[in-house]
Design a protein around this nucleic acid. Sequence first.
DNA 1: TTGAAAGCGCTAACAA
DNA 2: TTGTTAGCGCTTTCAA
Lengths: 353, 353
Amino acid sequence: MLFYGFCVILKSNRFGKRGITVRLTISDIAKKTGYAKSTVSAALNNKPGVKPKTREEIQRIAAEMNYIPNEFARNLSMQTTNTIGIIVRDITNPFYAKICRAIENTASEHAYTTLILNTDGIREKELNAIRVMSGQMVSGVIIDISGKDTDLLMELNKFGLPFVVFGTTAGELAADSVEADDYNGAYQAAEYLYSCGHRKIGFVHGGMESVYSQRRLRGIRKALEHNGIELEEKYIFYKAKTIQEGYLMGKKLVNFEDLPTAIIAYNDLVAVGMIRALEENGRQVPDDISIIGFDDIELMTFPLTTVQIPEYEMGEKAAELLFDKIMGKASGRPREILLDTELVVRKSVKRLL
Amino acid sequence: MLFYGFCVILKSNRFGKRGITVRLTISDIAKKTGYAKSTVSAALNNKPGVKPKTREEIQRIAAEMNYIPNEFARNLSMQTTNTIGIIVRDITNPFYAKICRAIENTASEHAYTTLILNTDGIREKELNAIRVMSGQMVSGVIIDISGKDTDLLMELNKFGLPFVVFGTTAGELAADSVEADDYNGAYQAAEYLYSCGHRKIGFVHGGMESVYSQRRLRGIRKALEHNGIELEEKYIFYKAKTIQEGYLMGKKLVNFEDLPTAIIAYNDLVAVGMIRALEENGRQVPDDISIIGFDDIELMTFPLTTVQIPEYEMGEKAAELLFDKIMGKASGRPREILLDTELVVRKSVKRLL
DNA sequence: TTGAAAGCGCTAACAA
DNA sequence: TTGTTAGCGCTTTCAA
């Protein structure tokens, strides 16, 4: 019986230590081929100044011997890495998962690898993530800052890490950034609700320190004002970002006296949680109450009307911005990319008219 | 106006190159404190043999100067890394996202970092992932092998990478592995359907090269046999693993002549896709057809009855096994961990009795 | 076109 | 208790 998972001696160790894996190095290739390390290096990296025949021979033998360059030594020597860091709240949120996938795909086209760190939005973890990234010498980082987390950016700057941001770098601070047009998305959502006859409209925000929340709120408010009604304070509900929080929100809603006829949720997760809680308490969506979400997560069974955020494109664009920066192709001014959102109408909103 | 994202000179370069970030090194700390590099290293790493006062002083100054060790140099020197690799099909699948989160959490307790690579189940990408992992000198990898991908394990072995596997290492090959009890889960699901009066039961598998599919099929078959009925060949439907594939499956199902009264889907994603397609074509779940899923993804609005797989625990256990191996604590024999599944009854199955 | 040697930032053996 | 030195595997001058 053959057991896997034991260490294999690929090359015998200088000290002959048993069971310790020693990988093939460029010196082994040099020895084998009879060329110098520098020649091997040049050949393997397709650098000019190597005789074609030599290059071919070296590459062939290296391939035969299954040589894989040690990226660490390489990076240390070149003083760069081929990895970019991603700092997100939670990869478990399909929204971020999609973004990370997009970044990874773009990165791998550049032969880069990604390092993903989750922070759960906890400051301490965010700070730590930046330190780890720095220690890992990532070439740059893509970070999701939902609030005015300018100190996170200061930190990134302190370590000299190029970065691109999801979210806005408000006011007099500016950085390359990618975001979706939340304002417009929210505006459209509210406008749509109005057109369906809804007048009492609520918003479950995701914490007002978040620019996304702020802009969505502004969008809703503006749309309603435009139609001559006002967003009532009591219909701005306390924050929720996750399914669980949405669920709790839904529970509370049930006991509410003067319920709005429609609610815009901070995101689809919150919408899911709310719907679950409402249905458990005998309220039907959209018959008893209408709901609109944000993100357009793929995984829904429920026909949720929602504002679609182009996650994949966001990830792609962010990666492109970052690579421009890493490659020194970025122009002086920070670039801010704003991507369109779109209201996807399904069946979670009741027509009252 | 202050622009972020430009490089900052943390320390002036030997060549005085402008705009190039040069990070602080251990030599800088040595110079500043007046101690030798080795002393600084020992102090910073809390190694014994350093005078407490010295240690304290060095640590203080290093912290003040915001020194962060270069992990690459560290790893190169120590011939290990503090990262473990994860090779999964697709992080966008919440099932894998959960697993990755669990692994990351466990890893970070050991001050390890994770490198996640997605393969979409494509052989070429899997092979490449292993090469990348090897080049990145990961301490070990956790890999999801759904089929009898023994050559992937051979590859891993070839590079001397310790690994732990999700899935089974069938037959005479064996490795540390973690898996859920698919067989039993499927058995329970089918048993439950039978108890609800279903006799015509179908299974949408995820590709019969997958051991999961095989075992689930066996579980279903056994449960039915136990009740004196047979799983009909025509009710074993072609493979589907994603929402899209489930959706297509659902579309086909609509035109089916002799539909089963209940279907067990390969996973929740497939169930979601099927339900969506069915409902679009006027069939209600569970009124017209009952459906059971696998995984118990959190994100469902639909009250899907499903076989819960303990993803988080799976990730945790896998990480623990791997760390044991990395730390040399593993005993000789491969360990296979089998985790219980549980049927979560919700409302996607109709009682016919 | 190739080779020798230095150096990336760190750890670790050994000497002081 | 601290310092000196070599070396991890690679790239990159610079010399041959």
